[in-house]
Design a protein around this nucleic acid. Structure first.
Length: 565
DNA sequence: CATGTCACG
DNA sequence: ACGTACGTGACATGA
C-alpha cells in the first residue's frame, strides 16, 4: 500500500523476458520513458479481460496497479496458487523455491541486486544494467513455471476446478479487501496503552517485592530462575528443550498455592495486549487512507485457510474484557455500521456431513444446541436435565474430535484421569457410530493414498502418516483427521466471499467487505441498508453449498467490531 | 535466529 | 516406551 512503481517486466514466450524501466533514480541514471506514457500505452492490454495473464502472486501487482489507476484484469493463472493447489503441504510457494524445485533453476536473488540488511538500497536505485536481467528473469521464470505446473494441474480435474473456480477468482477479492482496509480508533488504543503501562508498572513492583529482587518480567529465563531456583516452586512441566516451563497453564496451577505466578500471569496478559495490539495497531495506520491494511496469504496454511499478517487481523483479542476493548477500536466510517457474520459450529456441521452420522445430523436438522445434545447422549440424561458441567465436558469432546484427540489430551483438557476420559470417548462413539467410522476411514485413506480431501476435493497430503516413529505418525493421523473439516470450512468461506463480492459489485456499492477470520466475515455497511445487507450476506454465506446439514449464519451489527459480535 | 509464550479460529 | 488436540502470526529475549 506504499510501494512505488519502478518498472514493469514481461514475457510472452519462454526466453523472451523484457524489462521496461521508468522510475530508476541514481547518479548517472539514463533517461527513461515517462511513467504515465508507459501506463497509458499498456492500459488497454492490462485492462483487457480477454488478454489472459500469468503471474507469480499477482495480487501484489493488482494492488500496486490499482493505486496507479490501472485495473489489472484477465489474470488467469497465479503460479504460486498452481503450486499451492497442487500440493499445499510444500513448505514454500515463492518463485525462487518453485524455480529450484520444479525447473532445477537458481534464480537471481533480490539481495544480489539490492543488497541486504541496512545496506539494502531501493530497487529504484539499482543500476538498470543489473535491474533488467533480474526483473526480466522474474517474468520469464513465471512463464516457465506455468508451462510446467499447469499441465500437471490439468491432469487432476478436481484440483483444476478448485483452482479455477475458487482460488483464482478469490485473488481479486482479497486484493480489494486489502486495499479497502479497516478503520481503527487510534486515540482509544493509545489511551489503553497508557493504562496498561501504568498497571504493568504496579505489577512489576509487586512481583519484585515478592521475589525479593528485581528481574525482567518479559524474560521467561529470568522468571524460571526466580520461580524454580530462588523460590523453589515445584516444576510441573518442561519446555520442549527441557527447561522448566513458565507457560500459562503451569502458572495457573502454581497460582493456587503461591502469589508470584498470579502477578506474572496478569503482567503477561497486559504486556501481550500492549506490545502486540494497543502499541502497534496505531502505528500501522496508512498515512494516505487513514486505515489499517493487512495482507492475506492464500498459499501459507496447509489446510486451505487464509492467513493474515502485517498486522495479523485474525488474532485480535476477544476472550477477556480488556481484550475486547481492542475490538471496540475497530470502527467504521461516518454513516456506516459494522456488520459481522459468522458460520455457527461450522466444523462440527462438516463432521456431521462427512461422517453421515444420523444422530449428529438430526441434532443439527432440528436446530439443537449440539453440545447439549451430545451431553444428553453421552451421559444418558434428558436434554433439559443436562448440567453445566456435562455440557462443558461434551463441548470439550466435540472440539477434541475435530482435532483428532487422544484420551490423554481430553483428560488433560478436562482435568480428569485418562481412564475416565477414555470412557467418555467410548460412550461418544457408541452414540455416534458414524463419527467413529469416519475417523477410521479417514485414517485408512490417509495411510493408503497419502492424502485426505475436503468436500471440494482439495488435497491435503499426510506427511509422516507411515512414519516408523510412533509420535510422528500419531501427529500425522491427528492432522489428517482435522484437515478435511478445517479445509472444507476454508473452502466454504472462500466460496461465500466470492458470492458476497459478486453481490456487492452488482447491487450494493455501499457495502465493503473488510475482514475474514476463518469462519467470520466483517463488513462496513451504510446505515440505511443494514437490513437488506443482513439478508443478502446471510443468503450468500448459507447458500454456498448444499450439505446434509444446514449452514447457519449468525449476524450482528454495531458501532464497532465488539458490538457487532 | 531459536526459543518461549500467547493472541485468534 | 514413545508424548500428546488441529491450524496460524507476533512479540521479547538472548545467544
Amino acid at each position: 500500500m506504499t510501494a512505488e512503481l519502478v518498472g514493469i517486466s514481461f514475457a510472452d514466450t519462454v526466453g523472451s523476458g523484457a524489462y521496461v524501466p521508468f522510475g530508476h533514480v541514481y547518479p548517472g541514471a539514463p533517461q527513461q520513458l515517462d511513467r504515465e506514457l508507459v501506463l497509458n500505452k499498456l492500459k488497454p492490454l492490462l485492462e483487457d479481460s480477454h488478454q489472459i495473464k500469468v503471474g507469480q502472486n499477482p495480487k501484489y501487482d493488482m494492488i500496486i496497479f490499482a493505486r496507479y489507476g490501472v485495473d489489472l484484469v484477465g489474470v488467469g493463472y497465479d503460479t504460486m496458487l498452481e503450486s499451492y493447489v497442487f500440493n499445499s503441504t510444500a513448505s514454500r510457494h515463492d518463485m525462487d523455491s518453485l524455480a529450484l524445485k520444479y525447473l532445477g533453476y537458481k534464480t537471481l536473488k533480490y539481495e544480489d541486486v539490492a543488497g541486504k540488511g541496512k545496506g539494502q538500497i531501493n530497487f529504484s536505485e539499482v543500476d538498470i544494467a543489473q535491474a533488467a536481467p533480474y526483473a526480466a528473469e522474474d517474468a520469464d521464470v513465471t512463464l516457465r513455471l506455468h508451462d510446467y505446473l499447469w499441465p500437471k494441474l490439468k491432469q487432476l480435474p478436481t484440483l483444476q476446478r478448485l483452482f479455477q473456480e475458487i482460488e483464482m477468482p478469490l485473488v481479486s477479492v482479497l486484493a480489494t479487501m486489502q486495499r479497502t482496509g479497516v478503520k481503527i480508533d487510534a486515540d482509544m488504543l493509545r489511551r489503553q496503552s497508557g493504562e496498561l503501562g501504568q498497571r504493568m508498572l504496579e505489577l512489576e513492583q509487586e512481583a519484585h517485592d515478592v521475589a525479593g529482587q528485581p528481574f525482567n518480567l518479559d524474560s521467561p529465563k529470568q522468571i524460571q530462575e526466580i520461580l524454580y531456583q530462588k523460590l523453589g516452586l515445584p516444576v510441573l512441566k518442561k519446555t520442549p528443550k527441557g527447561q522448566p516451563s513458565t507457560a500459562e497453564d503451569v502458572l495457573q496451577e502454581l497460582a493456587e498455592d503461591y502469589s508470584l505466578p498470579r502477578l506474572i500471569l496478569d503482567y503477561r496478559s497486559m504486556s501481550k495486549l500492549r506490545s502486540t495490539y494497543t502499541d502497534k495497531l496505531p502505528e500501522m495506520i496508512n498515512a494516505d487512507t487513514g486505515r489499517v491494511h493487512t495482507s492475506y496469504h492464500q498459499a501459507v496454511a496447509a489446510t486451505g485457510r487464509l492467513s493474515s499478517s502485517d498486522p495479523n487481523l485474525q488474532n485480535i483479542p476477544v476472550r477477556t474484557a480488556e481484550g475486547r476493548r481492542i475490538r471496540q477500536a475497530f470502527i467504521c466510517d461516518q454513516g456506516f455500521t459494522v456488520l459481522s457474520a459468522d458460520y455457527s459450529q461450522i466444523e462440527l456441521r462438516i463432521m456431521a456431513h462427512l461422517s453421515g452420522d444420523a444422530g449428529l445430523q438430526q441434532a443439527f436438522a432440528r436446530g439443537a444446541d449440539v453440545h447439549r445434545a451430545t451431553a444428553a447422549e453421552v451421559f444418558d440424561v434428558e436434554l433439559d436435565a443436562v448440567t453445566d458441567e456435562q455440557r462443558r465436558n461434551a463441548k470439550a469432546i466435540n472440539f477434541g474430535l475435530i482435532y483428532g484427540m487422544s484420551a490423554f489430551g481430553l483428560g488433560r483438557q478436562l482435568k480428569i484421569d485418562r481412564t475416565t476420559a477414555q470412557e467418555y470417548v467410548n460412550l461418544y462413539f457408541t452414540r455416534y457410530p458414524g463419527v467413529k467410522d469416519f475417523m477410521d476411514r479417514t485414517r485408512a485413506q490417509a495411510r493408503e493414498q497419502g492424502f485426505v480431501e475436503t468436500v471440494f476435493g482439495r488435497r491435503l497430503y499426510a506427511q509422516d502418516i507411515n512414519a516408523s516413529n510412533h509420535a510422528r505418525r500419531q501427529y500425522a493421523e491427528r492432522a489428517a483427521i482435522n484437515a478435511p473439516m478445517q479445509g472444507t470450512a476454508a473452502d466454504l468461506i472462500k466460496l461465500a466471499m466470492l458470492a458476497v463480492h459478486d453481490w456487492i459489485n452488482h447491487s450494493a456499492d455501499d457495502v465493503k467487505m473488510v475482514m475474514q477470520v476463518h469462519d467470520e466475515l466483517v463488513f462496513e455497511v451504510a446505515e440505511t441498508d443494514v437490513d437488506s445487507a443482513t439478508d443478502n450476506i446471510r443468503r450468500c454465506m448459507s447458500g454456498v453449498a448444499e450439505l446434509s446439514v444446514p449452514l447457519v449464519v449468525d449476524v450482528g451489527v454495531g458501532r464497532n467490531w465488539d458490538e457487532a459480535h
